[in-house]
Design a protein around this nucleic acid. Structure first.
Lengths: 175, 175
DNA sequence: GGTGAAAGGTCATTAAG
DNA sequence: CTTAATGACCTTTCACC
């Protein structure tokens, strides 16, 4: 198993990325592959954890949550383990990641209005596991979520031996 | 149409959020509602742009993209319109948002390795529309993406009249 | 490849606002 | 009277063996 995904895997994933309700038969028609082949591939992708599940894509704005923000959290000493529970208890928190950088956690928040966002931020700051928060508000979506460019690039993930660093304007926050 | 989503809508969305392959029949069984009703609701949700589509959830790590980062970009004067095309041309860029704050754009990047991430950052910085970038690397996922807490909260999006601001540790970066 | 099940569409009836 | 929910019927399609 040298390469993680071959071309057929990528094609299946790309198709499911566009419409996860396409069944095995539909995929086999679209891709010109036998149904049994597609079924076997799909099972393998699920077993390997590459396809985790199938979800509806929801238009947050249309659903009444027109405000989004990214909130950087500084976590109190030794409280990182408790943060998950705190964040999950707050309805507006969509996802959260531990990161490098001057903040410890970056989380994405949705709210119905700026007032609602403020309530969420207050809820965050009232937790003693969170020492400080900094928010940036989303003004518009420039690129919508997509994994296809990763998947249909034709090549496997590149891992160059020679970094060949030429730029100089990039900064990785060391924390 | 006072409230955006009623309880049945929320239940349907929450179920589809967990498994978008559950069909109309399965939903009607699980929710104890007639098939035609669920179908009508679903059509309405799609027409209103609340259900945009159905996608596979992909395990990026299992798919060979074990490195994720959030990159803040400062955009060159007047080049914001060109950024979308630039970012879409770079395979690792999953999504991007124009935001308030000292950076202009926040984008989410996936890569196969740190070397691969570096290549992506170099690609970003080589574009003349991008003046500077700052990255934080994702160490772990604390809260996975979820919209359910927004949807099954039982109430419609709250929009309080009295902000009732009590906290003081929160900062919204003015840019 | 065949078969039982499920999906999607339409419609008349009924209930509720 | 308008809107929504329901059960019934139909045809096509799919998934499993």
């Amino acid at each position: 198993m040298d390469v993680v995904l071959d071309e057929l895997d990528r094609a299946i994933l790309a198709a499911l990325q566009e419409n996860s309700r396409t069944g095995v038969l539909g995929l086999s028609r679209d891709l010109g592959v036998a149904r049994a082949t597609v079924a076997a591939r799909l099972h393998r992708l699920e077993e390997r954890g590459i396809v985790i599940g199938y979800e509806a894509r929801i238009g947050l704005t249309a659903a009444g949550y027109g405000v989004q923000a990214f909130v950087t959290l500084e976590i109190a000493q030794g409280a990182l383990d408790d943060v998950a529970a705190v964040l999950e208890a707050i309805p507006g928190v969509l996802e959260a990641f531990a990161t490098t950088g001057s903040g410890d956690v970056l989380c994405r928040v949705a709210a119905a209005s700026h007032d609602d966002l403020q309530q969420t931020l207050i809820a965050l700051n009232q937790s003693r596991t969170i020492a400080r928060s900094t928010s940036v508000i989303v003004l518009s979506e420039i690129v919508g979520f997509r994994t296809m460019p990763l998947l249909d690039a034709g090549e496997s993930p590149r891992t160059p031996k020679a970094p060949a660093y030429r730029g100089g304007r990039s900064t990785v926050d060391p924390g």
